[in-house]
Simulated assay, not measured.
Amino acid sequence: MGKGDKQAVKSDSDEIIDLDYRDFWGWGAEKFARYVNNLLHDRHNVDLHTFRLHWDPDVPLNCKDLRSWISYAVKHKVKVLDVELRMYDKTNLPPGIFTCRSLQELNLQWGGAPYQDIEHKGLVPPDIIRLPSLKKLTLRDVEVSELPLSSFIDRSPGLEDLHLIESATCLKLIASKVLKRLTLDGSMYGVENLVISAPHLISFECTGCSLKDISWRDKPSLERARIHTCGSTFGGESRFTEVLVHAKELALFGSDIKVMLEKELPTCSVFENLTTLELGKWDLTKDIYAVLRFLQLSPRLEELTLMHRLPYKEAGTDVMPIGEMSFQCPFLGSVTIQRSEGDTGVDKLVDVLVAHGVSSDKIRVTSYEDIQKKAHADKIRAEQERPKKKLRMV
């Protein structure tokens, strides 16, 4: 192997190592491991900014190899550690990750465990966590309880971005004075009576939770929120719209959302900053009150996306009357209605919007199937245009 050969990096700098499985089609785990070991052996002895490893094939990587690569990155003061694996024995998690003083961004998405690891439901953070430089944390398939999460927050004073994906979450409180972005993307058991205390939070995303299980302390003024609930009832104990009213972008989906909005929008303050709104995933042809009331309360709205979906069963709430509701949205430039292919009921929805003041030439109707086809075509096109790396022979 010649010393003048190029390393598999995305830049001319010696500070980035980027290993993506799509560049190694047909390679087995052993051949790939030899490649990475040679790459690290020949690398100049300088600090490492980014170590990125995405390995998706069904054959898992050897735990010993992976531990040595991550230990190498930690030893060379890595700032961004981004590791996504399809399978990994989480009992062999390299402990040095959680005491790396240089680490600024940590992304660990380990996926499902191999069959011999079935008793281990998710990655368990160690007792000792000390990441003084950490700003962004993403964890997937993790056993998260209040103690280790508090350790992350307390021992990472600059942590501004927290993203938990499909984790076994046992949380009652998320408290931080500096957290700016929080994403809860699914949960193995769901959250229950979760209190969020993050006064400087500007972005909140939540999927797969019930609104009745989320409450706020030290309420933030969110600039952006994306919430997709799985519940069918909303207790109404707290004014949920109070944390949303200053937002510029909102995406609110699910029957739980519909019930909350119907209870709170009649007396809600004006959404003075709102420019982009996505709403729905309930039967909008029968209940469009929340849409029209949002239009009344959003004088600066520019883009509106409505997702119509016929429910498996009715939510059990009365349809809110719309009467002679009127509104002024002088900046509204586009209204997109998404619906299932063959669902002609949205014609009624279009008629209601036009009757209440939305110009018909601003309304576009599309199907979920067409959206998926376009997304698939875009993905194929992006993969075809993706530059291929010139790899050294091993």
Score class of each variant (00 low, 15 high):
341 E>N: 10
305 T>D: 12
266 P>I: 02
271 F>P: 00
326 S>I: 05
259 V>S: 09
295 L>R: 01
260 M>Q: 11
296 Q>V: 13
293 R>E: 14
318 D>I: 04
317 T>C: 11
330 P>E: 06
302 E>Q: 13
276 T>G: 06
315 A>T: 08
261 L>I: 05
363 I>Y: 01
341 E>W: 14
333 G>M: 07
306 L>I: 08
276 T>D: 13
351 D>F: 13
332 L>Q: 01
263 K>M: 08
350 V>N: 05
315 A>K: 06
270 V>N: 04
349 L>A: 13
351 D>R: 15
359 S>H: 13
304 L>S: 07
315 A>P: 12
291 V>Q: 00
318 D>F: 11
284 L>D: 07
278 E>S: 11
276 T>H: 11
304 L>Y: 05
319 V>C: 06
366 T>I: 11
314 E>K: 15
341 E>G: 03
325 M>K: 02
256 D>A: 06
330 P>L: 03
344 T>N: 10
328 Q>Y: 09
271 F>V: 01
285 T>K: 07
276 T>S: 13
332 L>G: 01
341 E>I: 10
317 T>S: 08
262 E>I: 11
264 E>Y: 02
288 I>S: 02
320 M>E: 15
302 E>D: 00
350 V>G: 10
334 S>R: 14
282 W>C: 07
266 P>W: 01
359 S>K: 09
283 D>K: 08
269 S>R: 10
351 D>L: 03
349 L>E: 14
290 A>T: 15
344 T>D: 13
284 L>P: 07
308 H>P: 11
365 V>C: 13
340 S>T: 12
334 S>Q: 15
311 P>A: 10
316 G>N: 03
300 R>C: 10
364 R>G: 03
285 T>V: 13
309 R>K: 02
361 D>W: 03
353 L>V: 14
265 L>E: 03
316 G>M: 02
278 E>Y: 09
277 L>Q: 02
309 R>Y: 08
368 Y>G: 09
336 T>S: 13
339 R>S: 08
333 G>E: 06
292 L>H: 01
259 V>F: 09
267 T>P: 06
344 T>G: 11
341 E>T: 08
299 P>C: 00
